[in-house]
Computed example of a mutant assay.
Amino acid sequence: MIRTLRTALFALALPCLLVGIWWLASDSSTSVYAPPLRTILSRFDNVWTADRLSADVVPSLLRLAAGYGAAAVAGIALGVGIGTSRTARALCEPALEFLRAVPPPVLVPVIMLFAGIGSTMKIVVIASGCVWPVLLNTVAGVRAVDPVATETARSYGITGAARFRYLVLPSASPQIFAGLRQALSIGVILMVISEMFAASNGLGYAVVQFQRSFAIPEMWTGILVLGLLGVVLALLFGLVERRALAWYHGSRGARRKAGGGGA
């Protein structure tokens, strides 16, 4: 219990310090573009009502979930296929290096030509940016599978789906989750960017509309909502990751204890 409280205090210390600095530094501000934090917070309740949340936040989250989910499935499936085949790596690596170097926001006008300006376009934009961290980390994780474990599995006749389930996937899963974590932050960014183009709802659309109507405090509240959304998503992802990789973190902790005891 004490350890949990200590961890929570450390996690909240820096955000509270930054909010306090922002409050004090902006308290006497007379700038239209950088209003005091107390002014921004005073508009929060009036702006982000239940209707606004259902009209803008929920559609954004649904698009993020669809694009991120599609990228996760495609990235893991392709990564396993490329990572386990030397021929596939040789064929795909040049194309992958070229495609991942293209910034996804640049593709928004192109995607709009094929997918229109609706939610499909936004989902495709999110997926096109999120897939690369998942794909490349999956390839690296599959390639890093212990050769001794691979030979042992082959000796015992463990092949096909059983080999993937009991050897490849567990060995590569820490690297896969690292890619999924990176993709989540990219997905939030692309969610906002895609909603700034020909959109009628969403968080990105709301922030741009506030900016165009010179409702600057309201615009800042939208930015705060995006920040809070990112924190919540990161915490939820951390919970899922710790549960899915409990065996991995447990083995690392045991190795650290063994190393400390030996010292």
Results as ranks from 00 to 15, higher is better:
residue 47 V to E: 13
residue 48 W to N: 00
residue 48 W to V: 00
residue 49 T to P: 08
residue 50 A to K: 08
residue 51 D to M: 07
residue 51 D to S: 14
residue 52 R to A: 08
residue 52 R to D: 00
residue 53 L to E: 03
residue 54 S to H: 11
residue 57 V to H: 04
residue 57 V to N: 04
residue 59 P to M: 06
residue 60 S to H: 10
residue 61 L to P: 05
residue 61 L to C: 14
residue 63 R to Y: 11
residue 66 A to N: 11
residue 68 Y to D: 09
residue 68 Y to W: 14
residue 68 Y to V: 12
residue 68 Y to R: 10
residue 73 V to I: 15
residue 73 V to A: 15
residue 75 G to Y: 07
residue 76 I to L: 14
residue 77 A to K: 00
residue 77 A to Q: 03
residue 77 A to C: 10
residue 78 L to C: 15
residue 79 G to L: 02
residue 79 G to R: 02
residue 79 G to N: 01
residue 80 V to P: 02
residue 80 V to L: 13
residue 82 I to A: 03
residue 83 G to Y: 05
residue 84 T to D: 04
residue 85 S to G: 02
residue 86 R to M: 03
residue 87 T to S: 04
residue 87 T to F: 09
residue 88 A to P: 04
residue 88 A to E: 02
residue 88 A to W: 05
residue 90 A to V: 06
residue 90 A to T: 08
residue 91 L to I: 15
residue 92 C to L: 11
residue 92 C to Q: 00
residue 93 E to H: 10
residue 94 P to T: 00
residue 94 P to M: 04
residue 95 A to K: 05
residue 95 A to P: 06
residue 96 L to T: 03
residue 96 L to K: 04
residue 98 F to W: 14
residue 99 L to D: 06
residue 101 A to D: 09
residue 103 P to Q: 10
residue 105 P to Y: 13
residue 105 P to K: 13
residue 106 V to H: 01
residue 107 L to D: 01
residue 110 V to D: 00
residue 110 V to N: 01
residue 115 A to C: 15
residue 116 G to E: 04
residue 116 G to W: 02
residue 116 G to C: 09
residue 117 I to Y: 13
residue 119 S to L: 07
residue 119 S to A: 15
residue 119 S to F: 12
residue 120 T to K: 05
residue 120 T to H: 00
residue 121 M to P: 05
residue 123 I to G: 07
residue 124 V to R: 01
residue 124 V to M: 14
residue 125 V to S: 01
residue 125 V to C: 08
residue 128 S to P: 08
residue 132 W to R: 04
residue 133 P to E: 06
residue 133 P to T: 07
residue 134 V to K: 02
residue 135 L to M: 05
residue 139 V to A: 11
residue 139 V to H: 07
residue 140 A to P: 00
residue 141 G to N: 11
residue 142 V to E: 07
residue 145 V to R: 01
residue 146 D to L: 05
residue 146 D to K: 01
residue 146 D to V: 09
residue 147 P to H: 01
residue 148 V to P: 08
residue 148 V to E: 11
residue 148 V to R: 09
